[in-house]
Design a protein around this nucleic acid. Structure first.
Lengths: 111, 111
DNA sequence: TTATTATATAATGGTTTGGTTATATAACTG
DNA sequence: CAGTTATATAACCAAACCATTATATAATAA
């Protein structure tokens, strides 16, 4: 269960950004497509893409292309997956963010 | 148990530095004096002082002066204390660092 | 009081971070 | 094919980060 100190610090640093932390909180509920993140975080598409790349470089998420869309999911094989789970228990349910977008009638293109 | 997303991200960012993460890992075992940290981390005293200040500003640690020394301890009243505990479970026992210093015969002045 | 020791703060500087805009790539559509 | 849509990458920049050295403060010791 215990992991390398530096590796753990690296994961915590990644999670120490509210956008990425929220992304992980969403992904633990269900896979998400890039365009969903763009809507949810009201941030430029390249900004989202770069956050996702950091998560992917760390091996925390995987990508899965479906036609023109790319869906991201948590990589449960990552050695730090348990840490991620333990941390996410401490934040509010991020699934709400998608729901509230739907209620606003904001369409997300990938579904 | 769930806390504000931004607040949590802030704590994670603080813990996302290997020096501070290790400090917390030590403090969860026992209180430490500044000069102990200086020895352990082989880093300038101001650097240590500034890390401790960040932890203190976040309310994660408390200080307690004993004569010319200042001892730091974890602030168990902090709302994020449980998060800190949950995270520290994932790193190796940092108490070893003090023990290995003693074995090297490196004196720490505050005891 | 002066000197020493422990710690904090200030000033500085190189590196990293996290956003932006512009551009490239890949897949779909007509 | 050309045009559109989804995503990634590149270039850029301001702000934050983390260390250093220099200096200030507080307590102790002579």
């Amino acid at each position: 269960m215990e992991k390398d100190l530096e590796g753990t610090a690296g994961i915590l640093k990644l999670m120490g950004d509210k956008t990425r932390l929220s992304m992980l909180g969403l992904l633990i509920k269900h896979d998400c497509c890039v365009c969903e993140f763009v809507e949810i975080f009201n941030m430029s598409q390249p900004a989202i893409s770069q956050h996702l790349r950091k998560l992917k470089d760390a091996g925390l998420v995987k990508e899965n292309r479906k036609g023109q869309w790319i869906f991201y999911s948590l990589n449960q094989e990552n050695v730090y997956y348990q840490l991620v789970q333990d941390v996410i228990k401490h934040i509010p349910d991020q699934g709400e963010k998608l729901i509230s977008l739907e209620k606003q009638g904001l369409r997300i293109s990938c579904n």
